[in-house]
Amino acid sequence: MPREDVPASDNRLNARIRARDPEAIRSVVERYADQIFRAARGAGLSRQEAEDVSQATFVTFVEGASRFEGRSHVRTWLFGILFRKLAEMRRHLSRDGQMDDIETVVEERFDVDGGWSQPPTAADGRAISHEIRQEIGDCLRGFSLQQRMAFLLREVEGLTTREIHDILGVTESNVGVLLFRARNRLRECLESKGFAR
């Protein structure tokens, strides 16, 4: 479900953000601090690291506020700053342009006509329950930063493909590729751990 955001057309708020009005800043922090923190935690950081990178994200936002023209949402801009900071921390970006081994794994599940040759083992997705949360965390650790962020921004924050494209700086079709890889990697990982039976 999409989470609340300040509309891009809220010109009054945008002007106050550009002027670094303390109340506008307070409002942005109040509204988005938990989302940014949650995304940083989702990217695999400890609580302390996530707090630090959240703080750095908001400070960068304030420092660049005079350039904020409201063409994108405040949320999109903040997530973009966060993503660049995470990318500085983890240099996994180079992996994402390459062929991913998950594509070979998925390819091998189908026959030449595109029918299943190795169907999924779970009869029902409800088998994926609360007890596997720890396993999901472990599986996510194997993701590249872009895959992980695309997946979390889509599934947890409910962002659109367009917003994710703005944040990660990849084309919209690449967002689809990142989601394809992330979802299949996670599904295969859990199945290999015996959870999807």
């Binding site: 999924p120 779970a122 997705g125 994926i128 999901i136 996510l140 889509r154 599934e155 979802r183």
Partner: peptide, 10 residues
């Protein structure tokens, strides 16, 4: 169903 569940659980 599994893909949907992965999103819900995450």
């Amino acid at each position: 169903s599994q893909i949907r569940s992965l999103g819900d659980t995450t």
